[in-house]
């Protein structure tokens, strides 16, 4: 940098950069933990901020969609809106259909979820954009199981712009090997981890656990966490560290102490 550039020029440059940045203020969302329903972070989440979730194998799809649903349930609660899930018809055959025999999924009422199946990626993107533009939608999950050429930077940017106006939060579930550029606000990788021990049956899988890596986060930190789903509270917590038995502190057995007790 030439030393002749003054402070005024730098100010101008800062101003210009600020204009280029998204106008809405982005809050820090750096932890993958999804706490109670009334956590303020979901209310303050920047509208239109695109989240991207992927696994590292095609069989991780269920884990990724669970995480997306958990996020969406908080958004639906905070914004009192609906949840739209757009997916491809061909993927439903391989990956199965979302299933809610209890009437709720991660805390979202199943009746508030609209499942849409598109025939091809073009229609999928159309439906996603249309849903993102609707003010009634709190969160929008776009599921894909394979990498698609059309699901590129332009598509994600368009989605983000559509959502910015309405306030919906789009969550894009990508296939594990899709490395296309995107304008995501945050990118996570969710893979299953061995479940916690069941308190009654040692041979049975207990609380669900995942390894969640934040690979990219605007205004936040990256890192890797192991999180655990608590079915009773409906919260996604950081898994407790492994239990390490520690010896009890040595008691004071000096003559003085004995005398004090006596």
């Amino acid at each position: 940098m030439s030393p002749r550039i003054g402070a005024a020029a730098i100010e101008r440059l800062k101003e210009r950069l600020a204009r280029l940045e998204p106008r809405t203020k982005l809050k820090r969302v750096s932890s993958p933990v999804i706490g109670g329903r009334d956590e303020p972070v979901w209310r303050d989440l920047a509208p239109g901020a695109l989240h991207e979730i992927a696994g590292s194998d095609w069989r991780d799809g269920a884990a990724a969609s669970f995480y997306a649903l958990a996020m969406a349930s908080r958004l639906a609660h905070a914004r009192r809106g609906d949840l739209v899930i757009v997916s491809l018809k061909s993927d439903a055959r391989d990956a199965g259909l979302l299933y809610a025999p209890k009437g709720a999924l991660c805390g979202v009422d199943a009746m508030r979820i609209a499942l849409c199946f598109a025939g091809d990626v073009e229609t999928l993107l159309w439906a996603a954009e249309d849903a993102a533009r609707s003010p009634s939608v709190a969160a929008l999950i776009i599921e894909t199981c394979k990498p698609h050429r059309l699901l590129n930077l332009t598509a994600t940017r368009r989605l983000q712009l559509a959502a910015e106006a309405s306030g919906a939060t789009p969550i894009l579930l990508r296939s594990a090997h899709d490395s296309a550029a995107s304008s995501a606000f945050r990118r996570l990788r969710v893979t299953p981890a061995p479940s916690a021990a069941d308190s009654y049956d040692a041979a049975a899988p207990g609380r669900l656990r995942w390894r969640v890596a934040i690979e990219r986060c605007r205004l936040g930190n990256c890192g890797e966490w192991i999180v655990e789903w608590d079915d009773e509270t409906g919260e996604l917590k950081e898994a407790p560290a492994l239990y390490v038995p520690r010896p009890a502190a040595l008691a004071d057995r000096s003559a003085d102490a004995r005398a004090r007790i006596a």
Partner: peptide
């Protein structure tokens, strides 16, 4: 008027994707 918006969105999606491709789960 988000209630109207929700209905309008469902209408648009159903008509473009086909009524059988926009579904809600029922227990």
């Amino acid at each position: 008027d988000t209630k109207d918006d929700a209905a309008a969105l469902i209408d648009r999606l159903s008509n473009r994707l086909g009524p059988r491709n926009v579904v809600r789960m029922r227990v």
